[in-house]
Amino acid sequence: MPCFVKAIKVDYSTNFEERNVLENGMPYTSGSLEIDTSSEYYPGRSDLKIMRSDTISAVKNTCELLSHLPEEKREKLNLYVASGVFIENVESHMGHLLRAFENIRDTKDESEKLKKLYRASPPLLALQTLTNSTMSFVAQYSGVKGDNATYGNTSKSGFTAIESACKKVIYDREDSLAVASNTAGDYSYMVHSSVIGAKDGWKESASSSAILLDSNKENSLCEITTTVNFENIKECDALFISGSFNQEDEVELKKEFSNQKTFSIFDLFGNLGPVNLFASIEKGIELLDQGKKSIAILDRDIYGKLSIIKIQKS
C-alpha cells in the first residue's frame, strides 16, 4: 500500500538577526517567525500566554491544511508531531525564575529563600515548557482526535513523525498528519552547540510545517516512501540535504554527495531542526512539478544519524 502526500504547508522565518548570546562566545544567526495575527486560526488570548511562536505557527498551518475537511473526517485523523527545544526565549521563559534567584541573593534564611522563590516563580512555567504543547494545541484548534505521539527533539524526530504517519496510512489505511515545529533561538543554540561545539557561520531558524498523508493517489502531490536505504539515493534525480548547523558542516555534507545534484535550504534558513525534512519535501515537490521524477531527501541529525525519504510523482 503506497502513501501519498495530499497537502503540505511550511512556515519559514522571515526575520534574521545576528546574536551574541555569550559574552565570550561566537555570534550566530537566528531566524524568527512573523505570524499573521489576523488569521482566523490565530489562537485565543488565554492560550497565547503559554504558546511558543512555532506552536502558534503549527496550529495555523494545520488548521489551514485541514480547512476543507469536514469535522467528522478531522476527528479521525492521526497526529504525529516532531518538536525542537521547548524554551523559545530564555529571558521570557526563565526571566521570572532568574529574577527570583536575584531576589534571594541577600536572603540568608533557607526557608525564607524558598518562600520568595516560590512566590516569584511564574505560575505557567510547566505549561509554557510542556513537551506536547504543539500537539495538544494543534489537536485543540484543528479537532484532530486520533492516534498520536510527540517525538523530540533533534531533527531525527521529524523523520520519526513522518514515518509514523506513513505507517498508519500503509498498515491501517488511516489518514494521518505529520507536524513539526522548531523553536530555534538562544536555548536551541546552547543545546546544539553543547554537543558539536560552536562554529563560525552557525545559523538556525524557527519554522513549522504540516503534511497530510493518505492512501488515495487522486489529487495527491507526490508518493512518499520512508523505507529508503542509502543505495536508493543514487537512483533519484536529485538529492536534498539538511542537518548542518554551520557553514563548515554544510560544506562537508555537500562534499559527501558531490557526485549527485544536491539542493539545500541551509543558506536560506539555516538548520530547521525537526522541520528540515518537511521543508525539503516542500521544495522537492516543486522540482517534481518541474519535471523531475524522484527526489531523495536526507537529513543528518546532530549525532550523525541519517534519515532518508524518497518522493516521486504520483
Binding site: V21, E91, R105, D186, M190
Partner: peptide, 17 residues
C-alpha cells in the same frame, strides 16, 4: 547563577556554557 546574573547579560546561557 547569582554570579552570572550580576555580571552577564544572559545568565542561564552563560551558566550552561
Amino acid at each position: 547563577m547569582i554570579g552570572f546574573i550580576e555580571q552577564k547579560q544572559n545568565a542561564v546561557c552563560e551558566l550552561i556554557a
